[in-house]
């Protein structure tokens, strides 16, 4: 199991290298990555998924506030898709609908065409992993125990962890650079360490889809780059909400821009991230230029009033 995962990842990584000098995130690159994943069987173990789709997804709170409104998006295996937008634009709510913490009030979430609502919590957790918002616990579980919980969806409830499970846990901890933390109490970790431990838990779930809400929160810049690079190299279908537009532009194949719960723009970062859009959605003045070294759009914010008032 472990072997397949690692090999598949490395193949995908190789693809990543050859693709990287071209503009990242072209349709061909995505297709190619998806093909590599399919050719090597399951990209991430048992939960392989080829496509995650949301179809007119909507969420309205019981009090009647519409947080997500008619969002349709697609993420293919091997592709990293970014969700950007200002605070309160519905990113988190949308992601929570996708990973099952919220039940959408409209539309559907589809995995390879099958409605996710029909699957049980366990079947869903075998295919979609996430780093949930911080659940503080008053109990001292070790990092290893927390990470090992990622094996739960693959187990009958009475089954104990096997040596193979423990190997997966060790490997995942090493991949996020947290192997030195294994025996520390989870509650005593710093925000960044916690974030990496929870990412390791998501890896241990061997999902086909990785849904991450601000995965770079709390992380210093080196880990931000490493975590995003790691996620990208997994070969899973990745859907990430990101605040940092430059990071999003660099690591994502495509972006969806949310504003007021709706998708207002989507496409490759180079097409989506424009000064006009930033003024309209975020209400800020900014300059977008293609960075000579990365080849990805880089956003520079300019102080002062936006060129246009945001349309909200």
């Amino acid at each position: 199991m472990t072997g397949t995962w690692r090999e598949a990842t490395e193949v995908t990584e190789g693809k990543e290298v050859t693709e990287a000098n071209e503009v990242m995130g072209t349709e061909e690159a995505m297709e190619a990555a998806a093909e590599v994943v399919e050719a090597t069987g399951s990209a991430a173990g048992t939960g392989a998924v080829r496509t995650l789709r949301t179809e007119d997804l909507g969420y309205t709170t019981p009090s009647g506030r519409r947080l997500v409104d008619g969002v349709s998006l697609t993420v293919r295996a091997g592709e990293t898709v970014g969700l950007v937008g200002p605070n309160g634009s519905g990113k988190t709510t949308l992601l929570r609908c996708v990973y099952g913490a919220l039940t959408p009030t409209a539309g559907r979430v589809l995995l390879d065409g099958a409605d996710l609502a029909a699957a049980g919590a366990k079947a869903r957790a075998r295919r979609i992993a996430t780093v949930p918002q911080d659940g503080q616990t008053g109990f001292d579980l070790s990092v290893r125990q927390i990470v090992a919980m990622g094996r739960s969806p693959h187990k009958r409830f009475w089954e104990a962890d096997t040596a193979a499970d423990r190997a997966l846990v060790d490997e995942a901890l090493a991949r996020v650079g947290a192997d030195g933390l294994a025996d520390r109490p989870f509650g005593q970790l710093s925000g960044g360490e916690r974030q990496r431990a929870l990412l390791a838990r998501a890896l241990v779930q061997q999902p086909g889809v990785l849904v991450l809400d601000e995965p770079t929160n709390h992380l210093d810049i080196r880990y931000q780059l490493e975590v995003l690079g790691l996620v990208r190299a997994l070969g899973t279908a990745n859907l990430l909400a990101l605040h940092d537009l430059t990071l999003a532009a660099y690591y994502c194949d495509r972006l969806y821009v949310l504003d007021g719960g709706r998708v207002v723009a989507s496409g490759p970062p180079g097409e989506v991230l424009t000064a006009d859009l930033l003024a309209q959605v975020y209400g800020v003045a900014a300059e977008v230029a293609v960075h000579p070294a990365t080849g990805a759009p880089t956003v520079t914010y300019l102080p002062g009033p936006p060129q246009r008032t945001p349309a909200r």
Binding site: E13, E16, V17, S142, R144, A182, D183, R184, G229, L230
Partner: peptide
């Protein structure tokens, strides 16, 4: 990390490992 044109591909780790004891 991402000094070049590619996303970081592997997180390298030092060999240091904590004992399995306590937890």
């Amino acid at each position: 990390a991402a000094a070049g044109n590619q996303p970081v591909r592997r997180v390298r780790t030092s060999a240091k490992r904590a004992g399995r004891g306590s937890g």
